[in-house]
């Protein structure tokens, strides 16, 4: 499976955010998008997730499962916000996303406990999500990537609010996903600690 972006450009309102971005990722490859604030990292990810329309160019999927030609439905998107409800317990949150998202063809998600163990927080999944600290909440949001299988991970500042050890733990999760033939695109402005990845530097426009 290959994920191709061809001459992408995007606008927000009247402003051109970026233009002519192309890349080609095969299974097992990662792309780290770097750049200063406002250079369009998040916008690029939202275009890839299908949440924003591209102004020109297109995103394609080659050799993926039949019936999927946009990566949207095969992607996990981890935005700035965690998409978890404070009032529900971590367990209820994860079960909801597991059942709501379902597995993409070609793989299956981890169990709840496995996923929580993978982020090192297996013993607090019975607590309400709102009780957790910011870093723990972020880690649980990563557990959400594990409970339902998606070949493509779109991660927007995934390690915000994480300490160094959690950073390492997260790099391990990404490495495991890549080993299994997944694709990871991460926008960040700090070193993520995984090696052997493509990188894309966005400069942004200055009007």
């Amino acid at each position: 499976m290959r994920l191709l972006a061809e001459g992408l450009s995007a606008r927000r309102g009247e402003d051109l955010i970026f233009k002519d971005i192309s890349f080609d990722l095969a299974g097992g490859e990662a792309l780290v998008v770097t750049g200063p604030n406002g250079s369009g990292k998040s916008t690029l990810l939202r275009v890839l997730a299908g949440l924003l329309g591209a102004d020109s160019g297109r995103v394609r999927l080659k050799g993926g499962p039949a019936g999927f030609d946009h990566p949207r439905e095969l992607s996990h998107y981890l935005g700035h916000r965690n998409a978890m409800k404070r009032e529900l317990t971590v367990e209820e949150n994860l079960i909801f996303w597991q059942r709501f998202l379902g597995d993409s063809p070609g793989g299956s998600g981890d169990g709840l406990v496995e996923a929580a163990t993978a982020v090192g927080l297996a013993d607090i999944i019975h607590l309400p999500f709102g009780y957790l600290s910011a870093g723990q909440q972020r880690r649980m949001a990563m557990a959400k990537l594990l409970v339902a299988y998606r070949p493509i991970w779109l991660l927007d500042e995934p390690t915000a609010a994480l300490d160094v050890s959690a950073d390492r733990l997260f790099a391990g999760l990404v490495a495991r996903h890549l080993e299994r033939g997944g694709i990871v695109i991460a926008a960040t402005h700090q070193a993520l600690g995984f090696t052997g990845v493509k990188s894309l530097e966005m400069t942004g426009f200055f009007h």
Binding site: A49, A83, M84, K85, F100
Partner: peptide
Amino acid sequence: REDGSLDLIMMQE
């Protein structure tokens, strides 16, 4: 929308 769930909901098939 505030907690980001809407994005994920809108991405589904």
